[in-house]
Each structure stands twice: as C-alpha cells, then as structure tokens.
Write a protein that binds this DNA or RNA. Structure first.
Lengths: 127, 127
DNA sequence: ACAATAACTGACAAAATTGTTAGTAACAAA
DNA sequence: TTTGTTACTAACAATTTTGTCAGTTATTGT
C-alpha cells in the first residue's frame, strides 16, 4: 500500500497533475501488464489461460496485476453463469482496447532499434 | 544494482525475450522519465534547465534518470566546448525523437478517459 | 580567501514492487 | 473420502526503486 505522506507519493501525484502522460505510463508499468493486456486481446480471457501463457507468474501475482488493470478500468471481470466453480472472464473495456494498438506501436519502436536500426544524433553546430 | 539470480530478474528477462513490448515499457517506466524526455524535446537540454522544470527532483535522482535514458540510447550527452564549468547538453537520439509522438499518443489516451469518456464493455452474449 | 556555478557521485535509508507460502470456497469426479 | 477444479486472499520476505545527505571538480567573480 502506498504511503500518502512519502516524498515518493507526493512526487508521483504532482507528475500526474502536471501531465496525463505520467499517469498513463504508470498504468502500463508493472512487470506483466503489457503482456497480460495483449493476451486478453488475443482471446485468453480466463485466469487459467493467462496462467498457461505466462508459466512463470504465480497466481498471487497474476491476481494482483489483474486487479490493478481493473482499477484503471482497462479491464472488467464478469462471472460466467452456470459454471462450477464459477468461471470469471476478463474483458477489455473500450479503454483497454484503445490501449492495444498503442502498445503495439511502442513494441515496434523497440523492435526497430533492437533489430539494428542505427542510433543517430542530429547536432546543430551553430548555436 | 540488479541481482542476476533473483526470480524478479529472471522473469523480467524472459518477458524481454518474449516480446519487445515488455522492454519498451520498461525503458519508459520510472518516476520522471516521460516528463524528462518531453522537456528535452522542448529544448530544455541542460541539467539545470531540467531541474528548473522539475523543482521537486533532486540532483541525484535527475542524474540517475538521465543515465538510464542514456543507457537505452534514448539520449546522449555532449560537452559544450568553451564553457566553464563544462556544460553538458542532453540530446535526444533518433530513437528518443521517435518516442516523443508515441508518448503523446499515450498521453491523449489517458486524457480522453480522464476527461470523462465513458468506459464501456462489449459483451458477446452468444459463446 | 571565499562564494558561486554546472553537473555530478557514493553511501545509505525509505518506500514500493515483486515473489513466496499456505490457505480458502464450493462443487464434481474417482 | 480424497482429489481436482477455478479463482482467488493474507501475511510475509526478497528485491528494486526512489529519495536523502554530504561531498567533488575546476574555474570565475568578489
């Protein structure tokens, strides 16, 4: 739980107020979040399916990440009727769906340079 | 410093291998990074200018964030000749410049929903 | 001689995130 | 009766990130 008196918390809040960029980055930060959103968008909308896709995640951690994504309204949970034990579907909201192509862009940006695109700097000699 | 034997480290690495999305998110994660990249893109290319723009950041922390951005080749440092004490310019690389509009998109995504865009869910009743 | 400047670093403490362990419910199948 | 299933939670430990404090360099201005 966050300590509301800490400098860290205060700095975070003032950055959130300064620009939405900072809240947006914080919503997608977190060890497994990007990958979870991607897998759900691909139809892996159940707890056990996500577990299969991410064999190294523990149930506790998966549960926590899902809860955080839910708290930012990126996804919602829905009980599946007539299932025993009760199944839960994780469904991306419109906000979550809008995020998917942005994460793709970010992914391609990273891939481009990871795959060898030259890093260059434009230096303006006259100041 | 990261412990190379920790589960946390191992999980991070396997996500990085799984998809570049995860490395890309990790490059922009960090309390001040998005805002620093933005300010540099706006011409605030000196240490003291960034400090002015981010009055709550300490020099130690600013230095650390800049070093991390540098390690991901998002920016480079250049000494400014004939300055005393030696001035340093922080310059976005092509990789850093490419990142700016992506962060803008992320920012607009967040703003849209923060400003009241309705959260909706499309639920397909027939399975 | 002393303060001011730009841009740091090392050592450490505080806080936050991530991971681990053990356990829950309610019903079904063996 | 024991095991298996889905989808969790609480309490805690390990690790990582963030912040703090004190000090450094080399030069110029007073």
């Amino acid at each position: 739980m966050r300590k509301k008196e800490s400098t860290d918390y205060a700095n975070e809040q003032s950055l959130f107020q300064l620009c939405e960029r900072n809240s947006a980055i914080s919503m997608i930060s977190g060890r497994w979040k990007g990958q979870i959103v991607y897998y759900i968008s691909q139809g892996n909308d159940r707890f056990h399916l996500l577990k299969q896709k991410l064999p190294d995640i523990s149930e506790t951690v998966l549960s926590r990440q899902l809860k955080e994504l839910e708290s930012h309204a990126i996804l919602v949970k829905r009980e599946i009727p007539n299932t025993v034990p009760t199944g839960i579907r994780y469904i991306l909201t419109n906000k979550g769906i809008d995020l998917v192509p942005i994460l793709d862009t970010l992914c391609n940006w990273g891939k481009l340079y990871a795959d060898g695109k030259k890093i260059t700097v434009y230096e303006d000699k006259q100041v």
